[in-house]
Amino acid sequence: MPTVVSVENVTKVYDSGFEALKGVDLQIEEGEILALLGPNGAGKTTLISTICGITTPSGGKITVAGHDVITDYRAARSLIGLVPQELSLEPFEKVMNTVKLSRGLFGKPKNDAYIEKILHQLSLWDKRSAKVMELSGGMKRRVLIAKALSHEPRVLFLDEPTAGVDVELRKDMWDVVANLKADGVTIILTTHYIEEAEAIADRVGVINQGRILLVEPKEDLMQRMGQKRLTIELQDAVANIPDALASYDLMRSGDGMALIYSYETTSSRTGITTLLSDLQKAGLQMKDLQTRQSSLEDIFVDLVKEEA
Protein backbone atom coordinates (compact mmCIF):
# COMPACT_ATOMS: atom_id res chain seq x y z
CA MET A 1 0.00 0.00 0.00
CA PRO A 2 1.43 3.41 -0.88
CA THR A 3 1.67 6.01 1.85
CA VAL A 4 -0.80 8.86 1.52
CA VAL A 5 0.01 10.87 4.64
CA SER A 6 3.58 10.90 5.85
CA VAL A 7 4.49 12.44 9.20
CA GLU A 8 8.20 12.55 9.93
CA ASN A 9 9.68 13.54 13.24
CA VAL A 10 7.03 16.18 13.83
CA THR A 11 7.24 18.26 16.97
CA LYS A 12 4.84 20.86 18.30
CA VAL A 13 5.62 23.29 21.05
CA TYR A 14 2.68 25.53 21.92
CA ASP A 15 3.18 29.20 22.72
CA SER A 16 2.75 28.32 26.37
CA GLY A 17 5.95 26.29 26.06
CA PHE A 18 4.10 22.99 26.29
CA GLU A 19 5.51 20.27 24.06
CA ALA A 20 2.43 18.50 22.74
CA LEU A 21 4.17 16.42 20.05
CA LYS A 22 7.61 15.02 20.70
CA GLY A 23 8.84 13.72 17.38
CA VAL A 24 5.94 11.89 15.82
CA ASP A 25 6.49 9.47 12.94
CA LEU A 26 3.46 8.09 11.22
CA GLN A 27 2.86 6.66 7.77
CA ILE A 28 -0.79 6.43 6.83
CA GLU A 29 -1.51 4.06 4.01
CA GLU A 30 -3.81 4.85 1.16
CA GLY A 31 -7.33 3.52 1.61
CA GLU A 32 -6.90 2.30 5.16
CA ILE A 33 -8.86 3.13 8.26
CA LEU A 34 -6.49 4.08 11.03
CA ALA A 35 -7.74 4.49 14.57
CA LEU A 36 -5.68 6.69 16.87
CA LEU A 37 -6.12 5.75 20.49
CA GLY A 38 -4.85 7.69 23.41
CA PRO A 39 -5.85 9.20 26.74
CA ASN A 40 -6.97 12.82 27.18
CA GLY A 41 -4.22 15.24 26.33
CA ALA A 42 -2.20 12.62 24.45
CA GLY A 43 -1.84 14.89 21.44
CA LYS A 44 -4.37 13.37 19.05
CA THR A 45 -6.08 16.63 18.18
CA THR A 46 -2.76 18.44 18.00
CA LEU A 47 -1.44 15.89 15.53
CA ILE A 48 -4.54 16.17 13.34
CA SER A 49 -4.50 19.98 13.54
CA THR A 50 -0.88 20.00 12.47
CA ILE A 51 -1.56 17.80 9.46
CA CYS A 52 -4.62 19.85 8.45
CA GLY A 53 -2.98 23.26 8.73
CA ILE A 54 -4.75 24.56 11.81
CA THR A 55 -1.51 24.72 13.77
CA THR A 56 1.97 24.94 12.35
CA PRO A 57 4.47 22.25 13.32
CA SER A 58 7.52 23.38 15.27
CA GLY A 59 9.68 20.83 13.48
CA GLY A 60 9.55 17.87 11.13
CA LYS A 61 7.90 17.28 7.81
CA ILE A 62 4.37 16.35 6.77
CA THR A 63 3.25 15.45 3.29
CA VAL A 64 -0.14 14.49 1.88
CA ALA A 65 0.05 12.54 -1.35
CA GLY A 66 3.56 13.88 -1.69
CA HIS A 67 2.57 17.52 -1.18
CA ASP A 68 4.25 19.30 1.70
CA VAL A 69 1.58 20.77 3.99
CA ILE A 70 3.52 24.02 4.37
CA THR A 71 5.11 24.76 1.01
CA ASP A 72 2.44 23.14 -1.12
CA TYR A 73 -0.51 23.65 1.20
CA ARG A 74 -3.12 24.15 -1.49
CA ALA A 75 -2.57 20.76 -3.07
CA ALA A 76 -2.19 19.06 0.32
CA ARG A 77 -5.24 20.60 1.96
CA SER A 78 -7.57 20.17 -0.98
CA LEU A 79 -7.28 16.41 -0.43
CA ILE A 80 -8.21 16.57 3.24
CA GLY A 81 -11.56 16.63 4.99
CA LEU A 82 -11.67 17.34 8.70
CA VAL A 83 -14.39 16.68 11.24
CA PRO A 84 -13.23 18.51 14.35
CA GLN A 85 -13.71 17.35 17.90
CA GLU A 86 -15.58 20.48 18.92
CA LEU A 87 -19.05 21.14 17.53
CA SER A 88 -18.02 24.41 15.90
CA LEU A 89 -20.77 25.69 13.60
CA GLU A 90 -22.38 29.03 12.78
CA PRO A 91 -25.53 28.89 14.89
CA PHE A 92 -27.72 31.16 12.75
CA GLU A 93 -26.82 29.59 9.46
CA LYS A 94 -28.93 27.09 7.57
CA VAL A 95 -27.58 23.55 7.27
CA MET A 96 -27.55 23.68 3.49
CA ASN A 97 -25.67 26.98 3.35
CA THR A 98 -22.99 25.95 5.75
CA VAL A 99 -22.36 22.76 3.78
CA LYS A 100 -22.21 24.72 0.53
CA LEU A 101 -19.75 27.15 2.09
CA SER A 102 -17.40 24.26 2.83
CA ARG A 103 -17.48 23.08 -0.75
CA GLY A 104 -16.78 26.59 -1.98
CA LEU A 105 -13.89 27.11 0.43
CA PHE A 106 -12.20 24.09 -1.07
CA GLY A 107 -12.51 25.60 -4.52
CA LYS A 108 -14.96 23.05 -5.83
CA PRO A 109 -17.66 24.19 -8.26
CA LYS A 110 -21.29 24.02 -7.22
CA ASN A 111 -22.76 20.52 -7.28
CA ASP A 112 -26.20 20.42 -5.73
CA ALA A 113 -26.82 16.79 -6.61
CA TYR A 114 -23.72 15.72 -4.72
CA ILE A 115 -24.60 17.83 -1.67
CA GLU A 116 -28.08 16.35 -1.72
CA LYS A 117 -26.61 12.85 -1.78
CA ILE A 118 -24.46 13.53 1.27
CA LEU A 119 -27.32 15.09 3.20
CA HIS A 120 -29.49 12.06 2.44
CA GLN A 121 -26.72 9.72 3.48
CA LEU A 122 -26.37 11.47 6.81
CA SER A 123 -30.15 11.74 7.29
CA LEU A 124 -29.93 15.51 7.21
CA TRP A 125 -31.98 16.18 4.11
CA ASP A 126 -35.13 16.96 6.11
CA LYS A 127 -33.12 19.43 8.15
CA ARG A 128 -31.46 21.18 5.23
CA SER A 129 -33.36 24.42 5.80
CA ALA A 130 -33.13 24.33 9.59
CA LYS A 131 -30.80 26.66 11.40
CA VAL A 132 -27.84 24.94 12.97
CA MET A 133 -28.85 26.06 16.45
CA GLU A 134 -32.13 24.20 16.07
CA LEU A 135 -30.32 20.87 15.74
CA SER A 136 -29.44 18.35 18.41
CA GLY A 137 -25.83 17.59 19.24
CA GLY A 138 -25.78 14.40 17.19
CA MET A 139 -27.23 16.22 14.21
CA LYS A 140 -24.61 18.92 14.51
CA ARG A 141 -21.96 16.23 14.47
CA ARG A 142 -23.47 14.98 11.22
CA VAL A 143 -23.47 18.49 9.76
CA LEU A 144 -19.76 18.64 10.49
CA ILE A 145 -19.32 15.36 8.66
CA ALA A 146 -21.38 16.64 5.74
CA LYS A 147 -19.19 19.74 5.58
CA ALA A 148 -16.05 17.64 5.55
CA LEU A 149 -17.43 15.38 2.82
CA SER A 150 -18.83 18.24 0.74
CA HIS A 151 -15.57 18.76 -1.10
CA GLU A 152 -14.93 15.10 -1.86
CA PRO A 153 -11.77 14.58 0.22
CA ARG A 154 -9.39 11.68 -0.38
CA VAL A 155 -8.27 11.67 3.24
CA LEU A 156 -10.78 12.15 6.03
CA PHE A 157 -9.91 12.96 9.63
CA LEU A 158 -12.58 12.26 12.22
CA ASP A 159 -11.65 13.62 15.63
CA GLU A 160 -13.74 11.68 18.13
CA PRO A 161 -16.71 11.38 15.80
CA THR A 162 -18.76 9.30 18.20
CA ALA A 163 -18.47 11.48 21.27
CA GLY A 164 -22.04 12.15 22.39
CA VAL A 165 -23.58 10.08 19.64
CA ASP A 166 -26.24 7.44 20.22
CA VAL A 167 -25.92 3.79 19.21
CA GLU A 168 -28.02 4.07 16.10
CA LEU A 169 -26.20 7.09 14.76
CA ARG A 170 -22.92 5.43 15.54
CA LYS A 171 -24.00 2.56 13.32
CA ASP A 172 -25.06 4.97 10.56
CA MET A 173 -21.71 6.67 10.88
CA TRP A 174 -19.82 3.44 10.45
CA ASP A 175 -21.91 2.74 7.37
CA VAL A 176 -20.87 6.08 5.94
CA VAL A 177 -17.27 5.33 6.82
CA ALA A 178 -17.51 1.90 5.20
CA ASN A 179 -18.91 3.47 2.02
CA LEU A 180 -16.10 5.98 1.95
CA LYS A 181 -13.54 3.26 2.39
CA ALA A 182 -15.13 1.39 -0.49
CA ASP A 183 -14.60 4.54 -2.57
CA GLY A 184 -10.94 4.45 -1.63
CA VAL A 185 -10.99 7.29 0.90
CA THR A 186 -8.36 7.05 3.64
CA ILE A 187 -9.85 7.55 7.07
CA ILE A 188 -8.15 8.50 10.30
CA LEU A 189 -10.25 8.62 13.43
CA THR A 190 -9.44 9.23 17.04
CA THR A 191 -11.23 7.59 19.87
CA HIS A 192 -10.91 6.59 23.49
CA TYR A 193 -12.69 3.32 22.92
CA ILE A 194 -10.87 0.19 21.87
CA GLU A 195 -14.17 -1.39 20.80
CA GLU A 196 -14.65 1.37 18.31
CA ALA A 197 -11.25 0.74 16.79
CA GLU A 198 -12.04 -2.92 16.82
CA ALA A 199 -15.27 -2.36 14.93
CA ILE A 200 -13.87 -0.62 11.88
CA ALA A 201 -10.14 0.05 11.89
CA ASP A 202 -7.56 -1.71 9.77
CA ARG A 203 -4.72 -0.46 11.90
CA VAL A 204 -4.53 0.99 15.34
CA GLY A 205 -2.08 3.60 16.55
CA VAL A 206 -1.53 4.38 20.19
CA ILE A 207 -0.37 7.84 21.18
CA ASN A 208 0.53 9.05 24.63
CA GLN A 209 2.22 12.20 25.88
CA GLY A 210 3.03 13.39 22.40
CA ARG A 211 4.60 10.14 21.22
CA ILE A 212 3.29 7.40 18.98
CA LEU A 213 3.86 4.25 20.97
CA LEU A 214 2.79 1.76 18.37
CA VAL A 215 1.00 1.38 15.08
CA GLU A 216 -0.14 -2.15 14.39
CA PRO A 217 -2.68 -4.00 12.31
CA LYS A 218 -5.79 -4.38 14.38
CA GLU A 219 -5.54 -8.18 14.47
CA ASP A 220 -2.11 -8.10 16.09
CA LEU A 221 -3.24 -5.71 18.73
CA MET A 222 -6.41 -7.63 19.39
CA GLN A 223 -4.35 -10.72 19.89
CA ARG A 224 -2.31 -8.93 22.49
CA MET A 225 -5.50 -7.77 24.05
CA GLY A 226 -6.66 -11.37 24.12
CA GLN A 227 -3.71 -12.33 26.30
CA LYS A 228 -4.20 -13.27 29.87
CA ARG A 229 -1.72 -13.34 32.65
CA LEU A 230 -1.55 -15.86 35.41
CA THR A 231 0.32 -14.66 38.44
CA ILE A 232 1.60 -17.46 40.67
CA GLU A 233 2.62 -16.27 44.09
CA LEU A 234 5.22 -18.42 45.76
CA GLN A 235 5.86 -19.49 49.33
CA ASP A 236 9.57 -18.76 49.00
CA ALA A 237 11.41 -16.44 46.65
CA VAL A 238 13.21 -17.92 43.65
CA ALA A 239 16.48 -16.48 42.36
CA ASN A 240 15.75 -17.51 38.81
CA ILE A 241 13.30 -19.52 36.77
CA PRO A 242 14.14 -23.25 37.22
CA ASP A 243 15.42 -25.00 34.09
CA ALA A 244 12.58 -27.47 34.27
CA LEU A 245 10.19 -24.60 33.49
CA ALA A 246 12.30 -23.03 30.74
CA SER A 247 9.85 -24.09 28.03
CA TYR A 248 7.10 -21.86 29.43
CA ASP A 249 6.65 -18.16 28.72
CA LEU A 250 7.41 -17.16 32.28
CA MET A 251 8.53 -13.95 33.93
CA ARG A 252 9.90 -13.57 37.42
CA SER A 253 8.59 -10.70 39.50
CA GLY A 254 11.13 -8.25 40.82
CA ASP A 255 11.39 -9.75 44.29
CA GLY A 256 11.26 -13.35 43.06
CA MET A 257 8.11 -14.00 45.08
CA ALA A 258 5.96 -14.60 42.00
CA LEU A 259 6.03 -16.02 38.49
CA ILE A 260 3.93 -14.52 35.73
CA TYR A 261 2.69 -16.69 32.93
CA SER A 262 1.16 -15.17 29.77
CA TYR A 263 -1.12 -17.24 27.60
CA GLU A 264 -3.66 -16.88 24.81
CA THR A 265 -7.28 -17.24 25.77
CA THR A 266 -8.04 -17.91 22.15
CA SER A 267 -5.83 -21.00 21.81
CA SER A 268 -7.36 -24.40 22.55
CA ARG A 269 -4.80 -25.30 25.22
CA THR A 270 -3.70 -22.75 27.72
CA GLY A 271 -0.98 -24.96 29.21
CA ILE A 272 -1.95 -24.01 32.73
CA THR A 273 -2.52 -27.57 33.99
CA THR A 274 0.85 -28.86 32.85
CA LEU A 275 2.57 -25.73 34.11
CA LEU A 276 1.12 -26.19 37.56
CA SER A 277 2.14 -29.86 37.78
CA ASP A 278 5.62 -29.04 36.44
CA LEU A 279 5.84 -26.33 39.05
CA GLN A 280 5.20 -28.86 41.77
CA LYS A 281 7.73 -31.26 40.27
CA ALA A 282 10.31 -28.46 40.36
CA GLY A 283 9.65 -28.23 44.07
CA LEU A 284 8.05 -24.79 44.15
CA GLN A 285 5.31 -24.13 46.68
CA MET A 286 2.36 -22.03 45.50
CA LYS A 287 0.70 -19.54 47.82
CA ASP A 288 -1.91 -18.01 45.55
CA LEU A 289 -3.07 -17.78 41.96
CA GLN A 290 -4.48 -14.86 40.08
CA THR A 291 -5.47 -14.30 36.44
CA ARG A 292 -5.99 -11.04 34.63
CA GLN A 293 -7.02 -10.03 31.14
CA SER A 294 -4.55 -7.56 29.68
CA SER A 295 -6.38 -4.38 28.74
CA LEU A 296 -5.54 -1.39 26.62
CA GLU A 297 -4.38 0.16 29.82
CA ASP A 298 -1.88 -2.66 30.39
CA ILE A 299 -0.60 -2.13 26.90
CA PHE A 300 -0.22 1.56 27.68
CA VAL A 301 1.57 0.82 30.90
CA ASP A 302 3.86 -1.69 29.22
CA LEU A 303 4.62 0.69 26.41
CA VAL A 304 5.29 3.60 28.70
CA LYS A 305 7.57 1.40 30.83
CA GLU A 306 9.49 0.34 27.77
CA GLU A 307 9.91 4.02 26.90
CA ALA A 308 11.41 4.86 30.27
Binding site: R74, R77, E86, S88, L105
Partner: peptide
Amino acid sequence: YFPKFIGTIYELLSAPIS
Protein backbone atom coordinates in the same frame (compact mmCIF):
# COMPACT_ATOMS: atom_id res chain seq x y z
CA TYR B 1 -13.86 37.66 15.06
CA PHE B 2 -17.04 35.58 15.11
CA PRO B 3 -15.49 32.46 13.47
CA LYS B 4 -12.59 32.79 15.89
CA PHE B 5 -15.00 33.04 18.79
CA ILE B 6 -17.22 30.10 17.87
CA GLY B 7 -14.39 27.98 16.51
CA THR B 8 -15.48 27.76 12.87
CA ILE B 9 -12.17 29.34 11.92
CA TYR B 10 -10.81 25.79 11.80
CA GLU B 11 -12.43 25.50 8.42
CA LEU B 12 -10.76 28.61 7.01
CA LEU B 13 -7.41 27.42 8.31
CA SER B 14 -7.72 23.92 6.90
CA ALA B 15 -9.06 25.00 3.51
CA PRO B 16 -6.73 25.34 0.51
CA ILE B 17 -6.90 29.11 0.59
CA SER B 18 -4.30 31.76 1.23
